[in-house]
Design a protein around this nucleic acid. Structure first.
Lengths: 341, 341
DNA sequence: GCCCTCTGTTGGATCGTTCCAATCCCTGCG
DNA sequence: CGCAGGGATTGGAACGATCCAACAGAGGGC
């Protein structure tokens, strides 16, 4: 069979061509000092001619570190995660690490399998972005690799986390709405993924502290467009429309917004809608959602910093970093038509 | 120093604990036949107890294949790429491969470095999604790894590609606009990335075939929100507003839309706007962009299929697969206010 | 002239797997 | 009873890098 697929040249091929030992090639590749200029040049030339490229698998095997951080994000379509990923990559690169991503497709099983892949690759650190499944599943693996979750507080003391204060953020939205005169404020819930539980708890707590415990109303949804749609449909079909609806994130809030639009409801006249994340989706002029801004890139950078603390400084005890959320008022909220006393 | 970080257990640790040879552990792990039930059970139990996880680096080193496809996407924020990535992952998984992603951050240098990382990892195939740089840079590496570009036709005969017919798609938009009565149709260009050149060429060709060569007008932009904004601003500030503007993709078109809105222009009354991709952004009710639908998931699946043809069937000659674009009419296009003869 | 240091270079062991050939044990058949 | 054949198991040689101890040669100091 002619035209066999050429094999990758190895360090030995380069050594033979440059007339030096493989050790010297290795030194040149890692550009170590104490290599004579002529040999260095010869090795580089040989490598160039052969199209040599170090084999990361072999390197990682002997060095016992891969120089890679794995990022498993729950949903590639959520722009908020893209912002966080930017922050991760930026910081990782600055520290000499690569970031490799994998999607969990909003499914606990596929998420776990993505994590498994990363662990088999022996990543030097693992970042879970808005993961769907229970963080504690990875308790055991955290003994050998540092793991950080973003937007979801971990209760394991081997797993670090970084997020904004979801309870506080949700509370700020309730305060904002109540300040406008709302009382019947519903919440579209999104299960246990990411900041779901915290936001929901924040909503409930804030409602209670405003003496609106009786008005607490939670419908099922999800962190997706469709999830928001479903939640809003439930509310409309119930016949008892609240005057305001809080979505678990921007994505879902926009779904809710669309259903409201389609039902002929005026936003915010008939109903106010809020999101969470301040993704650039929310900032589209025609959407202009009232929402909570999370410092996405900062979240990403911090996640990397937490990994580095464990790797370089050998930190052993858990850290949970909480960043401050910020209210962003758009045009999807306003006073209710008939102010309630 | 107490509490040393535990090392990963190896196949030898499992073998010792189960009282068998490492070879047998290897056989069990790959669940080979001809292993007695009792030994198999013993090995699995030992592996479980130790939390054994195969080391992908070691495996890939000896097997000379990693079981991984690398995906370098130019922009994590572009929802169109997320759709394509879904298709890639789906098909890869079905074929027993993993897909790992890396972002090129819309920068040729960082893109090249992401590709380099993938190559060092010895991925079994590489997919470039809407890449910014010249595909031909990777001509040499394509000798050892199959490479497919999505949304950008390659002129190298070692690199396959899959995309929709950008020229045709752009032509369909021109036809649509001309059919509505438009003549002064401008195009916001986005350089050489992804389908840029094809779409632009399609626009120019269609204008000419409609005998509107004299109306061809191209302003600089980019495949981003800001790129579309800048293009639209240029048009507005020129004082000579066209009656229709075509964006190079949805993202940019929406940026243009926002600038038009902000300038108090009625869309489509004063100006019609079109995009490209039919990303779910375009389908937001409040946006409802006229655009061209690309079969995103199908693009992704096809990209994987092309890799597999090279890997499994040893195909050597180049293939370029072109899928059919489809016009999706929204409410951002309509007849011009003063129909031009 | 001898020893010591420093610079530059080298071979061999090693990382954790897979693969291959070799071995061992058992069963059935002539 | 001997032997072929098959199933189950094993040790050792890869794979392609890094790291370490060792060493050659050039000066320098005494």
């Amino acid at each position: 069979m002619p035209d066999r697929k050429p094999r990758h040249p190895t360090i030995n091929d380069v050594a033979a061509r440059a007339g030096v030992s493989k050790s010297l090639v290795s030194l040149v590749m890692r550009n170590a000092p104490n290599v004579s200029d002529e040999r260095r040049a010869a090795v580089l030339a040989a490598a160039e001619e052969l199209g040599y490229r170090p084999n990361a698998a072999a390197r990682s095997l002997v060095r016992q570190r891969s120089g890679v951080f794995g990022v498993v994000l729950s949903d590639l379509h959520n722009p908020f995660f893209a912002d966080v990923a930017d922050g991760i990559e930026e910081r990782a690169r600055a520290e000499g690490y690569k970031a490799l991503l994998s999607s969990g497709f909003l499914d606990a099983g596929r998420e776990a399998s993505a994590v498994e892949t990363m662990l088999q690759l022996r990543v030097d650190g693992l970042i879970l972005l808005g993961n769907v499944g229970e963080v504690e599943r990875f308790e055991t693996e955290a003994k050998t690799v540092p793991i950080v979750t973003v937007s979801k507080e971990s209760v394991s003391d081997r797993i670090d986390s970084v997020g904004d204060d979801d309870r506080l953020g949700a509370g700020m939205l309730v305060d904002h709405l109540v300040g406008l005169g709302h009382r019947r404020i519903a919440y579209i819930s999104a299960g246990t993924a990411g900041g779901g539980p915290g936001r929901r708890a924040g909503y409930e707590a804030a409602m209670r502290s405003k003496r609106l415990a009786g008005e607490i109303r939670i419908v099922d949804g999800a962190f997706t467009h469709d999830g928001g749609r479903a939640g809003m449909r439930t509310l409309i079909e119930s016949g008892e429309l609240p005057t305001a609806v809080m979505g678990p994130n921007d994505f879902a809030a926009i779904g809710a917004l669309e259903v409201a639009d389609a039902a002929g409801l005026d936003v915010p006249g008939d109903i106010s809608i809020t999101g969470y994340d301040n993704s650039h989706l929310a900032r589209l002029r025609r959407i202009d959602l009232t929402t909570i801004a999370q410092p996405a890139a900062e979240l990403g950078r911090t996640a990397v910093a937490l990994l580095l603390e464990r790797i370089d400084e050998g930190r052993k005890q858990r850290r949970h970093v909480v960043l401050a959320p910020k209210l962003v008022v758009g045009t999807t909220t306003g006073p209710p038509r008939d102010p309630q006393q």
